[in-house]
Amino acid sequence: MPSAVTALNRRSPWARFRSGTRCFVRLQAMQIKSTLSFAIDVWIEKALFVLSQLAGLMFLWVIFTRVRAVGGWSLEEIVFLYGMLMLSMALYRLVFQGVRDTGMLIMRGMLDQYLTKPRNLLLLISCNRSNYTGAMDLITGLALVIIAAGRMDYQWTLGRALQLTVFVLSGNTIMVAVMMAQAAICFWLVRFTVVHELIMSLRAFCYYPITIYGAFLRVLLSTLIPLGFCSYYPAAVLLAKDGISAWWALVPPLVAAACLTGAITLFRFGQRSYESTGS
């Protein structure tokens, strides 16, 4: 008798996609239900999320009460960049945040129970911890981009709006891919939350133009952990800053595609090397 996994794999790609999507929606619904069972925490967390974003802006405000520009960028330009980076976090927080728990699941021997299910491991882990503050990232990020652009008298055209959409999609894909890659490393190193912390630390410094950092950090943020393509490069192209060529507009989507392919491959490779730590 064929196993459930074999039976699923025999279906057409379209049928598998539909089935995966259905599974995804059900898992998300369960996640919402589970999250709302701690209602007070959810609402406090949402309120605090907005506060923490405002606090990030407060840092900028405090600094800009003393200086006029940082790295040649004015307050409005940095707020625009800040908004771009916030927008790029939305998809990861909304849907894929569960991947950060991969190390913990491996360490506690809890990954085995996911592997026994006839579904894609990445899908199951991703839906494990969706965070609806991701919607706040989207709203706040967009508001900041629009407000900052308004204060700069930025001329929005259809082309620029489309470019912004492509950059936001690319930024989100890069962020998800980077997080997936850090999760994949845990298949070899088990508890290695430091990569997640590293990414979040580097992300915090991407609120500023990366040209202010040394060559090593600029290269790091443009290659190995390409968070520069979530904020700096798109903002520099849209605002025509730092003499960046318009051709750079093509780079973020290409980087996003390469990152996602690399991350999925690395995750699958890691999954094949997985050895249970026991329960």
Binding site: R66, V70, Y213
Partner: peptide
């Protein structure tokens, strides 16, 4: 790395 990044950021602020 965090110290290095903070150093670069404050260097840029003090520029």
């Amino acid at each position: 790395l965090s110290l290095l990044l903070s150093y670069c950021l404050w260097q840029a602020i003090y520029a």
